[in-house]
Amino acid sequence: AVSDRLIGRKGVVMEAISPQNSALVKVDGETWRATSGTVLDVGEEVSVKAIEGVKLVVEKLE
């Protein structure tokens, strides 16, 4: 799938994300809905860990 190429890519949080709420991230110039197990604020850099349906699963870039 096209989205599989995004695993391992870096992105930027466009809307705050919490474990209860998905929000938008920008990866390679494209906007995607994403979820995370932690709270992520706007502007934080993230890494794509997986794809669940049409959502990216991201975590904060260390």
Rank of each mutant, 00 (worst) to 15 (best):
S3I: 11
A1N: 12
V46G: 01
E62R: 09
P19S: 12
E30G: 05
M14I: 14
G29V: 01
V2S: 10
S22N: 10
I7G: 02
K49P: 02
L6W: 05
E52Y: 08
S18L: 08
V12R: 04
V48D: 03
T38S: 12
V25T: 01
K55R: 12
V12H: 06
V42I: 10
I7E: 04
V2T: 10
G37W: 13
S22I: 12
E62Q: 12
A34V: 08
G11I: 00
K49E: 04
L56C: 02
E15R: 08
V27T: 01
D41F: 15
A23S: 07
S36P: 03
K26Q: 10
V39L: 11
K60N: 04
V57G: 00
T38E: 13
T31S: 08
A34D: 02
V12W: 08
E30F: 10
A23F: 15
I7F: 03
V46Y: 01
D4Q: 11
K10M: 06
L24M: 09
V58N: 00
L24V: 08
E15C: 14
N21A: 10
G37P: 11
V25L: 03
L40C: 04
I7P: 05
L40E: 01
E15G: 08
V42H: 03
E45R: 09
E30W: 07
D41T: 14
M14E: 05
L61H: 07
K26V: 12
K49H: 06
G43H: 03
K49D: 03
E62L: 11
G43D: 04
V58T: 00
D28I: 02
A23N: 05
A16W: 15
W32G: 01
A1Y: 11
V27E: 03
K26L: 14
S36A: 09
I17K: 14
R9H: 11
D41W: 13
I7T: 04
S22G: 12
I51E: 02
K60V: 06
R33N: 11
I7H: 04
E15S: 10
S47I: 15
V42C: 06
T31I: 15
K26W: 14
D28K: 00
E62I: 12
E52A: 09
G37C: 14
G29Y: 03
A34P: 02
V13G: 01
D28Y: 03
S22R: 03
I17C: 15
G29A: 04
E45M: 12
L61V: 11
T38H: 11
K49N: 05
V39C: 13
T35L: 09
L6G: 02
V46N: 01
L40Q: 01
E15W: 07
I7V: 09
R9M: 15
G53N: 05
T38N: 09
K60A: 07
V25G: 02
W32V: 03
K60F: 03
V46E: 02
R9L: 14
P19G: 14
V46R: 00
L40D: 02
G37F: 13
K60G: 04
G11T: 01
S36W: 04
T35C: 13
R5C: 13
G11E: 05
E44G: 05
E59D: 07
L40V: 06
R33W: 15
E52S: 10
V2A: 11
A50S: 09
V27Y: 00
L56A: 01
G43W: 03
V48S: 00
K10P: 10
R5H: 10
W32A: 02
R33D: 09
I51H: 04
R9A: 10
K60C: 06
D41N: 14
S3R: 10
E59R: 02
A16M: 13
R9K: 14
T31G: 04
E44C: 12
Q20N: 13
D4G: 08
S18E: 07
G11R: 00
V57P: 01
P19K: 10
K10Y: 11
R5I: 07
A16Q: 10
K10E: 07
E45C: 15
E30Q: 12
A1I: 12
V42Q: 05
S36M: 05
A23Y: 15
I7S: 03
E30M: 10
V25P: 02
G37I: 13
D28T: 01
A50N: 06
K26C: 15
R5Q: 08
I7L: 08
D4V: 09
A50Q: 06
A34H: 02
S3Q: 09
D28Q: 05
V42D: 02
D28M: 07
A1P: 11
N21R: 11
D4T: 10
L24I: 10
D41Q: 14
V46T: 01
K10H: 12
E45G: 05
E44I: 07
Q20S: 12
S22L: 13
V12F: 07
V54H: 14
G11Q: 02
V13T: 04
I51K: 04
E15D: 06
E15I: 09
S3M: 14
E59V: 12
T35G: 04
V39I: 12
I51L: 07
T35E: 08
A16N: 08
V2R: 08
E44V: 09
E52K: 08
K55Y: 15
D28C: 14
D4S: 10
S18G: 13
D28F: 03
R9Y: 08
V58I: 05
K26A: 09
V12N: 03
S22M: 11
Q20F: 13
I51C: 04
A34C: 08
V42R: 06
D4R: 08
I51M: 06
S3Y: 12
V58Y: 01
E30S: 06
A1S: 11
A16V: 15
A16K: 12
E30I: 10
T38P: 04
V25R: 00
I17F: 13
V48I: 10
T31A: 07
A1Q: 13
W32D: 03
V2Y: 10
S47V: 15
G43K: 02
T31H: 07
K49W: 05
L56G: 01
I7A: 04
M14H: 04
A34K: 01
V57T: 04
G8T: 01
V54G: 15
G53T: 03
G29E: 06
D4H: 13
E15A: 12
S22K: 05
G8L: 01
G37E: 14
E52I: 12
T35F: 08
M14G: 01
E52D: 13
P19T: 11
E44R: 04
V39S: 12
S36K: 00
A50F: 06
A34L: 01
L61I: 12
N21W: 10
G8M: 00
K10Q: 09
V12D: 03
L6S: 02
E44H: 05
V39F: 14
V25C: 06
L6K: 02
A1D: 11
T31C: 15
V54I: 11
